Simulated scan of single mutants.
Amino acid sequence: MSQINPAIVAKLNEILEHELAGVVRYTHYSFMVFGYSRIPIVGWLRSSANETLMHAHQAGEMITHLGAHPSLGIGRMLETSRHDIKDIMEESLAFEREGVEQYYSLLELVTNEHQSSTMVMLEEYARTLIQEEEQHVGDIDKMLRKPGTLESVIE
């Protein structure tokens, strides 16, 4: 395998740390939901934590596939102490949008490299995760809308 651009490995490690922070974030949020809609919302949050962990696994596997060392760090986590469902969803939306940006950044790095089987694999990985993260953004956008409203809350 040819030498991989260190910026690609650094971006993958940033993605790994971001996704690991998401596992903690979604798990924490699931503890803080109260009210009549608690059960389905907790289920969605815990499902999101599991999916985010899977994304972290994929990033870590990608890093070791490239012959590099995965980070042991966890991305930025900010306790806002805002635990209203709307606040949780808005923070989740910001988290998911940041993830989309990171995967687009990876895609840009990869597509600027000479095409090889490794770069094609990384490009497909980035595109797949962009699609999944964009879907998450869309789901949260819909949850933040008032019932009967079709207009997106994303500015």
Rank of each mutant, 00 (worst) to 15 (best):
Thr52Gln: 13
Ala21Cys: 04
Thr128Ile: 05
His65Phe: 11
Gly60Gln: 07
Asn5His: 05
Thr128Glu: 13
Met89Leu: 15
Glu101Gln: 14
Val33Cys: 01
Lys86Ser: 11
Glu134Gly: 03
Gln135Asp: 14
Thr27Arg: 01
Tyr104Cys: 09
Glu14Arg: 10
His57Cys: 10
Ser47Gly: 13
Ala68Ser: 07
Ser92Tyr: 02
Met1Asp: 10
Ala126Ile: 05
Ile8Pro: 00
Glu134His: 00
Ile130Glu: 01
Ser152Tyr: 06
Thr52Leu: 08
Pro6Asp: 09
Glu91Gln: 14
Val33Asp: 04
Thr118Arg: 09
Pro147Ile: 10
Leu12Pro: 07
His55Glu: 12
Tyr29Ala: 09
Tyr29Cys: 07
His136Trp: 09
Ser116Trp: 09
Met32Pro: 01
Met89Gly: 03
His28Ser: 12
Arg25Leu: 15
Pro70Asp: 04
Ala59Ser: 10
Val110Cys: 05
Asp84Phe: 07
Asn5Ala: 05
Tyr103Asn: 02
Glu14Lys: 12
Leu66Pro: 05
Lys86Asp: 13
Tyr125Gly: 07
Ser71Leu: 03
Arg145Phe: 01
Leu16Ile: 04
Thr64Met: 12
Phe95Val: 08
Leu78Tyr: 11
Gln131Ser: 12
Ser2Gly: 13
Leu53Trp: 12
Ile85His: 08
Thr149Ser: 14
Ser92Thr: 10
Ile154Phe: 00
His28Gln: 13
Gln135Ile: 00
Gly43Arg: 12
Ile140Cys: 02
Val100Pro: 03
Gly73His: 09
His57Lys: 13
Asp141Pro: 00
Gln58Ile: 10
Met119Glu: 08
Val23Asp: 02
Ser116Leu: 00
Pro6Trp: 04
Met77Ala: 08
Trp44Ser: 12
Gly75Phe: 06
Asn13His: 06
Glu61Pro: 02
Glu113Thr: 03
Ala56Trp: 05
Thr111Ser: 11
Ser152Val: 06
Glu61Phe: 03
Ile8Tyr: 07
Asn13Ala: 07
Ser92Gln: 05
Met54Arg: 15
Ile41Asp: 02
Ile88Trp: 02
Ile140Arg: 02
Ile154Leu: 12
Glu90Lys: 13
Lys86Gly: 01
Leu78Cys: 08
Glu113His: 07
Glu101Pro: 04
Asp141Val: 06
Glu19Trp: 03
Arg76Phe: 06
His28Val: 13
Val153Thr: 13
Met121Phe: 13
Glu14Leu: 11
Met1Glu: 12
Gly43Pro: 00
Leu144Ala: 09
Leu144Thr: 04
Val42Lys: 10
Leu109Gln: 04
Val23Ile: 11
Val23Glu: 06
Tyr103Leu: 00
Leu78Pro: 01
Ile88Arg: 01
Val23Ser: 07
Glu133Ala: 06
Ile85Arg: 11
Val153Gln: 03
Glu134Leu: 06
Leu45Ser: 06
Gly22Tyr: 03
Gly60Tyr: 07
Asn112Trp: 00
Val153Leu: 09
Ile4Thr: 15
Asp87Cys: 08
Gln131Ile: 08
Asp84Ser: 14
Lys142Ser: 11
Ser47His: 12
Glu90His: 10
Gly99Arg: 04
Arg127Glu: 10
Glu17Phe: 00
Glu155Leu: 09
Asp84Asn: 10
Thr64Glu: 13
Gly35Arg: 08
Asp84Gln: 13
Leu106Gly: 03
Arg38Glu: 15
Asp139Trp: 11
Glu113Met: 07
Glu155Ser: 11
Ser48Gln: 15
Met121Lys: 14
Ser116Glu: 01
